[in-house]
Design a protein around this nucleic acid. Sequence first.
DNA 1: CCATGAATGGGGGATTCCCCTATCGGGAGG
DNA 2: CCTCCCGATAGGGGAATCCCCCATTCATGG
Lengths: 223, 223
Amino acid sequence: MAMKKNDLIPPAGQARILIVDDHPLVRAGFRALIGDEPDLAVCGEASGFTDAMRLAADQQPDVVIVDLSLAEGSGLELVKHLHTRLPEVRLLVCSMHDESLFAERALKAGARGYINKQEATDHVVDAVHQVLRGEIYLSDAMTQRVLQAEGGVQLGSVEALTDRELEVFSLIGQGIGTSRIAEQLHLSVKTVESHREKIKKKLKLLSATELSRYATQWSLERN
Amino acid sequence: MAMKKNDLIPPAGQARILIVDDHPLVRAGFRALIGDEPDLAVCGEASGFTDAMRLAADQQPDVVIVDLSLAEGSGLELVKHLHTRLPEVRLLVCSMHDESLFAERALKAGARGYINKQEATDHVVDAVHQVLRGEIYLSDAMTQRVLQAEGGVQLGSVEALTDRELEVFSLIGQGIGTSRIAEQLHLSVKTVESHREKIKKKLKLLSATELSRYATQWSLERN
DNA sequence: CCATGAATGGGGGATTCCCCTATCGGGAGG
DNA sequence: CCTCCCGATAGGGGAATCCCCCATTCATGG
């Protein structure tokens, strides 16, 4: 996550922003906020993957604001593809999704910032300016979380899990309860609980419900 | 669901609109859209139940636009309470949720219209005008469905859930624990537990983990 | 060799799960 | 008008889990 300085120079006049979000109302909100800034201008809108890729290629925007849930395709996929094909374009992910679950994924996918929709009205202009300067934007809480994870080689990813932990994690993702996991793996319930705790720590999850949700999503993604 | 004509007369000058939505960006979108209309004016914003009730009492708006998912409390509850305490105020529900699942519930709770966020930018001004005239606004597709489905609803799946149960189910799907659900809905933990039990019975789920998994999947599907 | 980490478990208090029952208010039907 | 049912609320109580401690064993690499 070292910050490279091979960015394009900031645009001379107005910076051009492309908005990608499946909710027309949210796009209207962005337009209103960004339109008030003298040095920013909205150069296009898209609600899905295909339109976004085409518009980004045509318009050559300085910043693309990407929502994670799109009408067509996924936001994370869009970030990866945009980052590959148009690496000079700064990507700012703005999502309603749980920050702890997606901020790191967004950064790994090539985004230069992640902002929660709850705080978007107050900070989106700041965030855009910041990524325009080549910096990375994260909420204060999330900055802590990500930076402190720099110590560990892998950032809160499933790859950091031990084989045994991954087995347990996978079973959790299949909706199997603690006691049944213990049966299935011929372990004590206490051992499974210990594994759950270690998994939670490694994935930086705060509660059993978060673990369950994360495991379920992970399980669904690779099916 | 017969249309009563005991409405107040339309306001003489500008109609006053109160916006209730937990996403600041969406509120900004509404403000931009409504602000462009000469006969409409935004008289306040709220993100949660309590603020909305207070503002509605203070401001005496002509129309309240209510999102179904709020920062504090639930939109359906808000519609019921507003309809009881301020029956002369027209309520327009605007949600990202599946229309077929919530439009009927919204109307029964006292709303005079339901508009999907996907089509909000194009139709919200029409919808507001329509409810101001004392008519009921629904999308064309939904009008058909509601009017013909007056008899009975499909049982056996999520549609079989009660309003309250559905709210709890949705929060479970967002990975929120029992105690925080209780906080958010201003309920006893015991009540939330009761709802969870009833949901499990209705959906034929055998354990809390199954409920969590099912709710998570359901929640992800409609994002 | 011994520091480290993985795998296995336990203690114990807090919380949740799960099956009961119970009240209360509103709407459907007699 | 008056039951009867049901949705919403909530408590009791025992079992299960959660969650933060900790201990032991065993392999592996520095």
